[in-house]
Amino acid sequence: MADPVVEISGLWTRFGPTVVHRGIDLDVRPGEVLGLVGGSGSGKTTLLRQMLGLERPWRGTVRVFGIDVNACSRAQLASVRNRWGVLFQNGALFSALSVYENIALALRELKVVDEDLIHDLVLSKLRMVGIEPQHARKTPAQLSGGMIKRIGLARALALDPELVFLDEPTAGLDPDRSESFVKLIQELRRELHLSVVMVTHDLDTLVSLSDRVAVLCEQRLLAVGPLREITEIDHPFVSNFFRGERGQRALEVLEDLQRLMPI
């Protein structure tokens, strides 16, 4: 078994008197897509931010590529940050920069890649997420929400990362775009041995992408495992989330898939 890409152990989070996480242990294995689900306020986004080193847990450690992101040198952190890409929930594109400059930024920051190569790479990334080159000069304010999301993904992939964090990747996309988004992630996994940590509420995305699902509930990690096992857990949150009407439909699709492609 290869070393985990992300390793969270004994993590506690506290905001003032409120405890958000109580001793969470979670590993992300190389090459897998881990879906993170939980009710609103269950600390999914906080956990994601802690993996990114944006927030410091009260107790416990978060290791990414074997490096403790809260206790490492600047150089180590910089090297980790070149190996991951993040898609924020609202895109978080730099509003003062054009689409092209947004994607080129990380490549330019490396200081060794010449402009010709950057141009080729930016255009291929745009193509990858299905954005026409004529939009490259636009600023984020001129784009629709779905386009911002895809460009956010292109920016997250600018350095061909090994690990991608997706915060609600398909929220705000139409079903057609969600589907192509899911296909895109699957394709990238094959090509780039991508590991993905994904926070999502969208069951269809969860069903079609995730290898394992982690359920955050009542400040703890309720369960981690393949979607099939998770759905059979007897817990009010799980039965609401997966066995509601929408959940049922998504799971039927999963069963159909498994009949076609027995694992």
Binding site: Y100, E115, H119, D120, V122, L123, S124, L126, R127, M128, P133, A136, R137, E187, R190, E191
Partner: peptide, 22 residues
């Protein structure tokens, strides 16, 4: 085979050039 899509994608985006100058 696993590297070929990379080249295909780069080839496909070749004809379009984006001018940097405003």
């Amino acid at each position: 085979p696993e590297h070929q899509p990379l080249f295909r994608r780069l080839d496909a985006s070749e004809p379009s050039r984006v001018s940097e100058a405003r």
